[in-house]
């Protein structure tokens, strides 16, 4: 374990550009090294890919197939072409649901990241008491959503005696209806999402902060940099892989928001929190119309793929600036 203590260094973005051999696609040579790499990679990737093939890809393909059928296991499936897709798209609630989904995705992602960043910066450190505080802050993430939903129903109780209403009453606001009015429900749901998402992001950011090279802080202090400059020029650049993860996750998860809404408001009141998944649930699964439900999820999947590709492309464009590449030889 002699190497345990080696720092996991993140390269600051302003450092000397390292000449890199460039991404593989620019070189057309396919030598024995490349073949060997492929074999090694295949061996190391095999367990993950085999499991994914069996439990993700095959079910996914089956879902695509179901989306073109009326699913009736004991009578035989009926081919209905695009009918299931039409059912969803023709629903009057579809466009509002897309809008709510996007608003929620952007708001929750942004909110969680900002709050998570602040928490991570405030609670970073090795002291034992910080250990417990971080654990306490992390609690919302490990508690079952069913319980979280009950907690927030209590906090948001719309009467004047409600906990949050009492709090905002002190500063002369409220009482608010929270989940129970179409004007406030979406924001209320979003706050719960941020409250639960921020500690999650905090942990990932903390892990990133752990990897920042301490000598750079020292160097920045020697140069007389303020804390703001230090954050901007040393910490944030070093957190780039962390942001990459957070943005990718946000792109993947953003559109499929479901359980929170299902447990908190089920899309109500007056459809003000209806998102794509809850709509799909009502049109498809509540009525056991698996074809419709599949069609909805395929559309969701396609949208998510596009979004993820966009995030990846944006990342790559930035990352194509000089950086250390893994060895290709």
């Amino acid at each position: 374990m002699t190497t345990t203590g080696h720092p996991v260094t993140a390269r600051p973005v302003d450092a000397e550009p390292v000449p890199s051999p460039g991404p593989a696609r620019r070189r057309r040579r396919f030598g024995p090294h490349a073949l060997r790499n492929l074999l090694v990679a295949a061996v190391f990737l095999a367990p993950a890919l085999l499991i994914f093939l069996a439990f993700k890809f095959i079910p996914m393909v089956r879902a695509v197939e179901m989306s073109f059928h009326e699913v009736r296991p004991y009578l035989g499936n009926l081919w209905v072409g695009l009918e299931n897709y039409r059912t969803l798209l023709d629903s009057d609630d579809f466009l509002p649901a897309v809008w709510h989904t996007v608003v929620l995705a952007v708001g929750q992602t942004g909110g969680s990241m900002v709050v998570g960043m602040v928490l991570a910066l405030l609670l970073e450190g090795g002291a034992r008491h910080l250990w417990f505080i971080r654990t306490a802050v992390f609690l919302p993430t490990v508690v079952a959503l069913a319980v979280i939903a009950e907690v927030w129903r209590v906090l948001y109780y719309p009467g004047e005696a409600g906990v949050v209403n009492s709090l905002i009453g002190w500063v002369g606001l409220g009482p608010s209806q929270f989940f129970n009015s179409a004007d406030t429900s979406l924001w209320s749901v979003m706050s719960v999402g941020i409250w639960r998402g921020a500690p999650y992001d905090m942990m990932i950011i903390l892990a990133g902060l752990a990897g920042v090279d301490r000598t750079l802080y020292e160097a920045a202090a020697v140069d007389g940099a303020t804390i703001r400059q230090r954050l901007w020029h040393v910490t944030f650049p070093a957190l780039r892989p962390v942001f990459a993860i957070l943005f990718t996750l946000a792109a993947i998860r953003g559109l499929r928001v479901f359980t929170e809404i299902y447990l908190l408001t089920d899309g109500g009141p007056n459809g003000s929190t209806e998102v794509i998944m809850t709509l799909m649930f009502k049109l498809g699964l509540d009525r056991s119309e698996l074809g419709v439900a599949s069609a909805g999820s395929i559309m969701l999947l396609l949208a998510t793929v596009v979004l993820t590709l966009a995030v990846q492309l944006a990342r790559r464009r930035r990352a194509d600036r000089p950086r250390k590449e893994a060895p290709s030889r």
């Binding site: 095959i58 393909v61 089956r62 197939e65 296991p73 004991y74 035989g76």
Partner: peptide
């Protein structure tokens, strides 16, 4: 895989 899965689930009264 798709063909295999479809064949396995061909419907019809049982």
């Amino acid at each position: 895989v798709l063909i295999g899965a479809t064949a396995a689930c061909g419907g019809g009264p049982v």
